[in-house]
């Protein structure tokens, strides 16, 4: 019998494994696809945690929009030589320090979580889009406005930085550091 629990743990494990593959991947496209898998697994988790709206957003916005953006960007770069140059060397010393640090961080986090005596369990009651919408356009109106500004700013700056070279030639006397 497959319970919600086992489904959750399975999809969580899937997300973890896929994330590890993202981080350690060599091919950009492969890594992107693993990221999609990871996001989808997380979306399943969301659904199991009783947040179908969030799960839908995860699939549509993350896996759909943002990852497609990544794919477009990768297509523009043509990364053949770059990947070979900067691919992580397996077993190389450069992994040791970060992993040690990360394990430490994880330990600290887990200890913090287990020490904080959280008894709550997730109530398998669905919080639907309506509740979210009421909150968003009620108390969180200001946050929504700010988020829209943020998106606008992202749009403008994305357009500006990614302008074609010809358009930027007039700014060539700028220092690199100024723009980046």
């Amino acid at each position: 019998m497959i319970t919600i629990n086992t489904l959750f743990y399975l999809s969580g494990l899937l997300a973890i494994v896929a994330s590890i593959k993202v981080v350690t991947g060599k091919q950009t496209i492969h890594a992107l696809l693993y990221l999609v898998v990871s996001l989808l697994a997380v979306a399943v988790c969301f659904y199991l945690m009783g947040a179908p709206f969030a799960a839908g957003l995860e699939v549509i916005v993350y896996a759909g929009a943002i990852l497609v953006l990544f794919v477009f960007a990768v297509m523009m770069f043509g990364l053949a030589q770059d990947e070979h140059l900067h691919a992580p060397k397996h077993g190389a010393g450069q992994w040791l320090g970060p992993i040690f640090l990360s394990v430490l961080l994880l330990l600290v986090l887990i200890i913090a979580i287990s020490n904080s005596e959280i008894q709550q369990v997730l109530i398998p009651k669905v919080i639907d889009a309506k509740d979210v919408g009421i909150l968003l356009y009620g108390p969180y109106l200001l946050a929504v406005e700010i988020a829209s500004f943020l998106l606008l700013a992202g749009l403008v700056s994305g357009y500006h930085y990614a302008k074609p070279r010809q358009a930027m030639q007039s700014d060539d006397n700028f220092q690199v550091g100024d723009e980046i």
């Binding site: 319970t3 919600i4 629990n5 959750f8 743990y9 969580g12 997300a15 973890i16 994330s19 590890i20 993202v22 981080v23 997380v42 988790c45 199991l48 945690m49 900067h86 992580p88 450069q94 992994w95 970060p98 992993i99 640090l101 990360s102 394990v103 961080l105 994880l106 986090l109 887990i110 979580i113 287990s114 959280i118 709550q120 369990v121 997730l122 109530i123 398998p124």
Partner: peptide
């Protein structure tokens, strides 16, 4: 039908976070 413990969700979140963190530092 059993329910998911919040601590487990948080631990999953921590693990994912740390994996991402490793990626930021190493790559």
């Amino acid at each position: 039908m059993t329910t998911i413990a919040l601590t487990h969700v948080l631990i999953l979140a921590s693990i994912l976070f740390v994996i991402g963190f490793v990626g930021v530092i190493v790559r």
